[in-house]
Measured scan of single mutants.
Amino acid sequence: PAHPYDRLKTTSTDPVSDIDVTRREAYLSSEEFKEKFGMTKEAFYKLPKWKQNKFKMAVQLF
């Protein structure tokens, strides 16, 4: 299930529990994912792991 970005980011005051914290981005809706990352999930997962992590750090999901 998708969760709002505000509850997934590492600085959230009301974090979602029971998620894989190493894959926070996977819980974003497709729309919100595209808004935050500027690309689709499919394109994101084709990137090298280090680049994925760099993007995730930039949007507080790492």
Score class of each variant (00 low, 15 high):
40 T>G: 07
44 F>K: 00
47 L>T: 00
54 K>T: 08
1 P>A: 11
54 K>G: 08
23 R>S: 10
4 P>H: 06
34 K>L: 15
2 A>C: 15
33 F>K: 00
25 E>T: 06
62 F>A: 15
58 A>E: 13
19 I>E: 05
41 K>W: 08
18 D>T: 07
50 W>R: 03
1 P>H: 13
60 Q>E: 14
11 T>W: 03
2 A>F: 15
56 K>N: 03
46 K>W: 08
50 W>E: 07
62 F>N: 15
35 E>K: 07
48 P>K: 02
45 Y>R: 07
41 K>D: 02
2 A>M: 15
60 Q>H: 14
21 V>S: 08
61 L>A: 09
25 E>L: 10
42 E>T: 10
36 K>Y: 15
55 F>L: 15
56 K>M: 07
20 D>H: 05
19 I>F: 05
22 T>I: 10
56 K>H: 02
38 G>N: 10
25 E>D: 03
9 K>V: 12
50 W>V: 04
60 Q>I: 09
22 T>Y: 09
46 K>I: 13
9 K>Y: 06
35 E>Q: 14
44 F>W: 05
33 F>D: 01
28 L>M: 07
12 S>Y: 06
50 W>I: 02
35 E>I: 10
35 E>T: 10
44 F>E: 00
52 Q>I: 01
42 E>F: 10
52 Q>C: 02
51 K>W: 12
54 K>W: 14
24 R>A: 05
37 F>H: 01
20 D>R: 04
33 F>E: 01
40 T>L: 08
28 L>Y: 04
53 N>V: 13
48 P>R: 01
4 P>D: 08
25 E>R: 09
4 P>V: 04
28 L>N: 02
6 D>L: 00
42 E>Q: 12
27 Y>A: 04
38 G>L: 09
35 E>N: 08
40 T>M: 07
54 K>C: 15
47 L>Q: 02
12 S>V: 03
17 S>H: 14
49 K>N: 05
59 V>A: 09
53 N>A: 12
15 P>G: 07
32 E>R: 06
4 P>W: 08
19 I>G: 04
18 D>S: 09
15 P>Y: 03
20 D>F: 03
4 P>Q: 06
55 F>M: 15
37 F>S: 00
59 V>W: 11
62 F>P: 12
8 L>A: 05
61 L>M: 11
36 K>Q: 10
32 E>P: 01
43 A>S: 13
49 K>H: 09
3 H>E: 06
60 Q>V: 04
5 Y>I: 07
62 F>E: 15
22 T>N: 11
48 P>M: 00
14 D>L: 07
48 P>S: 03
18 D>G: 14
31 E>I: 09
41 K>A: 08
15 P>D: 05
35 E>M: 11
11 T>Q: 07
24 R>K: 06
22 T>Q: 09
17 S>L: 15
30 S>P: 14
23 R>I: 09
58 A>M: 14
36 K>P: 01
38 G>Q: 10
5 Y>W: 09
9 K>P: 07
13 T>K: 09
38 G>W: 07
47 L>C: 02
57 M>Q: 11
39 M>N: 00
9 K>E: 09
17 S>M: 13
26 A>L: 09
24 R>M: 10
5 Y>C: 13
44 F>R: 00
47 L>A: 01
30 S>G: 11
8 L>M: 05
5 Y>V: 05
9 K>D: 09
53 N>D: 14
23 R>Q: 11
24 R>H: 09
8 L>P: 05
15 P>V: 05
30 S>F: 12
16 V>N: 01
50 W>S: 09
16 V>D: 02
1 P>V: 14
49 K>T: 11
38 G>T: 03
43 A>H: 10
37 F>G: 00
50 W>M: 03
25 E>Y: 06
10 T>E: 06
58 A>K: 13
32 E>N: 05
10 T>K: 03
9 K>G: 07
62 F>S: 15
61 L>G: 09
56 K>G: 01
61 L>W: 13
3 H>R: 05
20 D>S: 03
50 W>D: 09
47 L>F: 05
25 E>A: 06
52 Q>N: 00
10 T>W: 05
46 K>G: 12
58 A>W: 13
10 T>D: 12
29 S>R: 03
25 E>P: 04
53 N>H: 09
21 V>Y: 11
27 Y>W: 04
59 V>F: 10
36 K>S: 02
3 H>K: 03
61 L>K: 04
19 I>P: 03
40 T>D: 13
54 K>N: 10
6 D>A: 00
53 N>S: 09
41 K>H: 08
28 L>K: 03
50 W>L: 02
50 W>F: 06
2 A>R: 14
34 K>C: 15
27 Y>E: 06
4 P>K: 05
30 S>R: 12
51 K>F: 12
59 V>C: 12
41 K>T: 08
38 G>R: 10
49 K>D: 06
43 A>C: 13
61 L>R: 04
46 K>H: 13
17 S>A: 14
36 K>V: 15
7 R>I: 09
37 F>P: 00
58 A>T: 10
33 F>N: 00
25 E>Q: 03
39 M>E: 00
38 G>E: 09
40 T>A: 09
39 M>I: 06
43 A>W: 05
28 L>T: 01
30 S>I: 13
5 Y>A: 03
11 T>L: 03
49 K>Q: 11
6 D>W: 08
33 F>Q: 01
23 R>G: 03
16 V>T: 05
